[in-house]
């Protein structure tokens, strides 16, 4: 592609990036505001941060969110890796078309429908388990949250792993197989280490998606399992509060540091190669 930009494109880009970043910057600036009215600047202070640290409801929600996100991201990384592997390597098996649909549908399905469908399924399963096996009902809570998050995040991991597998040198696997390695050994010794960066990227994506999800969590969580987005959502519906600004600033800071450092590390590796 030819380099060089026309004035029109340049102006569009500048305006576009202002549009993307202005709200975030405003949010950060006003997290240091002393006033109770979030958008009227009074004076610089850390009040919002002090209040945030003392807010037990938010801290509990952070803990719930971290538990759900790490467990569901790990499960999704395992399931998603298998999905990606199956889709790139097993090009012909019965039901492949349905499988492809099942893997990619969660990517585009509106969350309201997925959330509703999953919740009704959980209730139905609970009833079945109770009536047939006499198992105490699981109810809505951490377990249902983790299952729901794992299910939609699996699709994202599968896409990332699939793209990693697509640009993959098969000759290494073939060589190992020719030398007598069994398929499982080939997978764990050759394939897995090569696609590991994809799996890690997929895990991180699943983790952030889980931390961020509002709608599916709203349907599938129950009392005692309020994730951070659910607490923020219920607070935000009542209006803006400086504490949420402070919380947002901290979250944005963590993500930015993560993304920027990942990018720098990636570029340095590229240079070495």
């Amino acid at each position: 592609m030819k380099r060089g930009l026309s004035l029109f494109v340049l102006i569009c880009m500048i305006l576009g990036f202002i549009f993307l970043y202005a709200p975030i910057i405003v949010l950060i600036i006003f997290s240091f505001n002393k006033s109770k009215l979030v958008t009227v600047w009074q004076e610089f202070s850390f009040d919002a941060y002090v209040n945030l640290v003392n807010n037990k409801q938010i801290l509990d929600a952070v803990w719930v969110s971290l538990k759900v996100a790490s467990l569901s991201a790990t499960l999704a990384a395992i399931l998603g890796t298998i999905c990606g592997y199956v889709l790139t390597r097993f090009t012909k098996f019965r039901g492949r078309f349905l499988f492809l649909g099942l893997v990619s549908a969660p990517l585009v399905m509106p969350e309201v429908i997925t959330g509703l469908a999953m919740l009704l399924m959980f209730i139905q399963l609970d009833g079945l388990l109770q009536n047939i096996f006499g198992i105490e009902p699981v109810g809505r809570g951490l377990v249902t949250l983790i299952i729901a998050h794992t299910t939609f995040a699996t699709a994202y991991v599968a896409v990332v792993v699939q793209s990693r597998l697509a640009g993959f040198d098969r000759s290494l696997e073939e060589a190992a197989a020719d030398l007598g390695a069994r398929p499982f050994k080939v997978f764990f010794l050759i394939t897995l280490p090569i696609i590991a960066p994809g799996i890690i990227a997929g895990w991180l994506l699943a983790f952030t998606l889980s931390l961020d999800d509002v709608v599916i969590s709203d349907f599938t969580s129950g009392p005692g399992a309020s994730t951070l987005p659910l607490v923020i959502f219920s607070k935000v519906r009542l209006g803006i509060s400086p504490e949420i600004n402070a919380l947002a600033t901290i979250l944005i800071l963590i993500v930015s540091v993560g993304i920027i450092s990942a990018n720098i590390i990636g570029r340095q590796r590229e240079k070495k190669n």
């Binding site: 987005p229 947002a248 993500v255 993560g258």
Partner: peptide, 26 residues
């Protein structure tokens, strides 16, 4: 990276940011 960064930050918080910007009073 500047396009991807907002995508990784919380969707809810980015929507929330607009309440303070678009509000009628203040």
């Amino acid at each position: 990276m500047m396009v991807i960064l907002p995508f990784w930050t919380s969707f809810l918080i980015r929507v929330y940011a607009w309440i303070g910007i678009l509000g009628k009073e203040n």
